[in-house]
Structures are given as structure tokens and as C-alpha cells.
């Protein structure tokens, strides 16, 4: 398991691994927002949590189709199936590697981008918290989507269509935590919902992903 995690991290960091792609996308999308809606501080402040959450979600989506497709192409996915690792565990580890290389950088970059969108001071903390709690869910749900579409050539668009609706609850509660936090309201209810949601998908999705993958690879 550790070997798989280290391999995936190493591959992501080497040339062509796609590390930083999502982060760069996130930066650019957030930078474009003031250009498109205008530099008015009050407006930007109001939409900042939603924009940042949406940006993070799309950036995460960008790298999902590489999650399993590359391993299928070179045959390592089939070899992993014959390995003593349980497939559920292997997929959970791969989702963790995806979060470490895609989700975590987004979480860390978000407060700085919040400054660009005039996010008010306590809001940074809540934005960071909500993204840190919510992005792992994006990675594991994405793993399920990737497992569903793994055998399909150029299944990237289909993957997005399948996964985006599943992202809705996480987006609602995550953005709500950030919004309430920056408006000075009590964010604990959406925060608990978000945390519960993430825990549930982290616990269940690897099993669902492994099941559909076993069927898909027959």
C-alpha cells in the first residue's frame, strides 16, 4: 500500500505527471472572475466563497480521467488485480495520492486567492477548513467515476457528467461553511454535514469503485 502511494506520488511529480495542472487551472479561473464580474469589492466579497469552491471542484475534475486510465493503458491495473493487495485498498490509496497531489495544493492556495476576491478576514480560516474537509470527498467520488468509465476511450467528458451531480452535496455544504464563516455567522451545522458527508464517501466509495472496476475489466 505504501509502495503504491509512493509510486503514484512519484509519478505525479515527474515530468508529464500532471502535478500542478489543477493548481494552475484553479489560479487562472479565480483570476478571471474579477475580470468577468468587475472589480467591485462588495460583490466580489459576496461571491468569493462560491467562486473558490467551484474553482477547486473544477480543478479537481480536470485530473480525474488520468486517475485510472494510465494504469489501464500500461496494464498495471490488471496486474494490481492479481496482486495480494485488496482492490478496495489499492483504490483508496490511489484516491489519497490524488488528493495529496491535487486537493491539498488547492486547499493551501485558496486563502491567498481569497485575498484577490476580497474575502473578509475570518473567512479565510473557514474557507481553508471547508476545503480541507471537502476535497477528500471530491477525490474519492472521482475515483468511483474513473472506475466506472475506465474502459471507455476518451471517457473524460462522460466522467465529468457522471461525477458532477455527485459533487453537489459537497459543494452546497462546503460553500455554505465558507459563506457563513466570511459573513460572521455560525458555520457549525454545514461544517458537520460536510464532515459527515466526506467520512461517508471515504468509507463507502472505495468499495463501490472496486466493484464497478472488477465488472468493467472482465
Amino acid at each position: 500500500m505504501t509502495a503504491l502511494l509512493l509510486r503514484d506520488l512519484r509519478l505525479a511529480l515527474r515530468a508529464g505527471g500532471g502535478f500542478g495542472l489543477g493548481l494552475a487551472f484553479f489560479l487562472i479561473v479565480t483570476m478571471l472572475v474579477p475580470f468577468s464580474v468587475g472589480p467591485e469589492a462588495a460583490l466580489l466579497q459576496a461571491i468569493a466563497p462560491g467562486v473558490l469552491w467551484l474553482g477547486a471542484l473544477l480543478a479537481c475534475l480536470l485530473s480525474l480521467d488520468r486517475l485510472l486510465a494510465l494504469d489501464l493503458e500500461d496494464g498495471s491495473l490488471e496486474l494490481l488485480l492479481t496482486a495480494p493487495l485488496p482492490l478496495e485498498g489499492a483504490l483508496a490509496v490511489k484516491a489519497l495520492a490524488h488528493w495529496l497531489t491535487t486537493g491539498l495544493p488547492l486547499v493551501l492556495a485558496a486563502p491567498f486567492l481569497g485575498v484577490m476576491l476580497q474575502l473578509a478576514a475570518p473567512g479565510h480560516l473557514w474557507l481553508l477548513t471547508s476545503l480541507a474537509l471537502g476535497t477528500p470527498a471530491l477525490s474519492v467520488i472521482g475515483m468511483f467515476g474513473a472506475a466506472l468509465t475506465v474502459g471507455i476511450k476518451r471517457g473524460g467528458l462522460l466522467l465529468s457528467l457522471l461525477v458532477l451531480p455527485l459533487y453537489i452535496p459537497t459543494l452546497i455544504f462546503g460553500a455554505e461553511v465558507a459563506r457563513r464563516g466570511s459573513a460572521g455567522l455560525d458555520p457549525s451545522t454545514p461544517l458537520l454535514m460536510l464532515a459527515g458527508l466526506t467520512l461517508a464517501v471515504v468509507a463507502l466509495m472505495p468499495f463501490a469503485a472496486a466493484t464497478v472496476l472488477r465488472i468493467g475489466l472482465r
Partner: peptide, 25 residues
């Protein structure tokens, strides 16, 4: 099992590829 695809990562060295599979097993 060994089939047509070798399960190798182009961006890892020969040693890293072998070591990875050794650890998995």
C-alpha cells in the same frame, strides 16, 4: 500473470518499476 501489457511506468526507472512490484507482492 504476464500478458501483452507489461505494467511498466515510463517515467520510473527499471529499478523503481521492479521494486514497486516487489513491494506490492
Amino acid at each position: 500473470y504476464a500478458a501483452h501489457a507489461d505494467g511498466l511506468k515510463a517515467m520510473l526507472t527499471v529499478r523503481e518499476n521492479l521494486r514497486f512490484w516487489a513491494q506490492v507482492f
